[in-house]
Design a protein around this nucleic acid. Sequence first.
RNA 1: GUGGGUAUAGCGUAGUCGGUUAACGCGUCAGUUUGUGGCACUGAAGACCCUCGGUUCGAAUCCGAGUAUCCACCCCA
Length: 422
Amino acid sequence: MELVATRNKGAEDILPPDTYVWQNTERFMARIAESYGFDEIRFPTFEKTELFVRSVGETTDVVQKEMWTVKGRESTYTLRPEGTAGAIRAVIQNGLLNEAMPRKIYYQISAFRHENVQKGRLWEFHQFGAELVGAAAPQADAQMISMANDILSGLGIGTELHINSVGCRECRRKYYEVLREFLLPVKDKLCDTCRSRFDKNPMRILDCKSEVCRELTANAPVITDHLCEDCAKHFAQVGELLDEAGIVYKVDPKIVRGLDYYSRTVFEFISSDIGAQGTVCGGGRYDGLIEEMGGPATPALGFAMGMERLILALKAKGGTDAKAKGCDLYILAADSERTGNSALKTAASVAAALRKSGKTAEYDLCSRSFKAQMKYANKINAAKLLVIGESELETGECVIKDMVSHEQRQCRLDGEEILRTI
RNA sequence: GUGGGUAUAGCGUAGUCGGUUAACGCGUCAGUUUGUGGCACUGAAGACCCUCGGUUCGAAUCCGAGUAUCCACCCCA
């Protein structure tokens, strides 16, 4: 067989029974978010390219080399590489900022990044995201982290929580100076990419995986020691609140986050059993973003979870036994020359009656023999079986068989009656 | 952009001195006498052995290139 075209690299078909794992997971996450007062929003898959350039940041890898951009007639559009920009755009544009603050929203979307695919990293991937807008206090940070923690632990996924503060614009600027001063003497020894990071984003050098850079930066000053008074206090309070909530975390001054809009608290939940791409949830505060996008200065924060990675983690734990609902009643229509296709017609009307009551009912669609229908009923794991043939049509009585216990029960050939019997 | 692994029916695999109609398991479909499934048995459908080129009388098998895919670097969810 040769297909006209095959599925693209970096894209996945999600099939049953996996679709049920996804459904269950998505419903669970939505329920937790709603219990925290978050409402779902939906927004377009594509936005004007400038939106992402402005919000995610011109110099970030995401904007520089990972966006799917197309020229339309009126403008240049980009498939969303993440959710926050579009969600916040929608919040501002639709006046949600005029509602009672804070406003809490969540979304389940697919997003697109053009990078090399590997385990847990795709061109089209799915995210669950949540944004909390209009709250500057540290308890907002703590609540956001607590919600993410509830979702992950509720799903049974083991993770490690890393948090950090990247400070505000001011403390970051000052810290960069201190850091560059420290690194200047060894600048030439750094790896190639880190040398280019020196000017643009020196903080990222601390995150470098190369042996050389690691050694050189082992004693480098860390941002948490150079926060301004307000940022330091905020970060300390977030830590206290997490302690009180009993949430275990590790302060990791090396978490940087590759999106420019982050400020103050940033965090990652990391799983160790899904390969190299272990970050299952990432997020943080972005107090400057809404103003940057043309809205009123409004503090906000959010996080996103990678669905594919969550599902990988679920599977690694063996927690994915979701199944389709299955068939409640298979109706075997045994037509003969004498009955024509009246058994089939009766089967259809009985099935319709059951479906109105939310039961799953099926009957033969392939004009198969009695035995073949029987086998089919078994293969689809039908719970009960009803045979309609000459004698049932004549007497108006039928038998319902339990496919597991083999027990048979007499019953009138009537939708209501059958519904009561199964 | 850079490494490394892999490529044979829907799925999982065998096929390694190159030698006829490419094999097996699962799955699918049908049958094993007429209205009761699972098991067993029988049979059928299903593969240009990733593509192109080379070596050879002969290539799934050897060589080269390409492509796809997976894993990893980078970056991120």
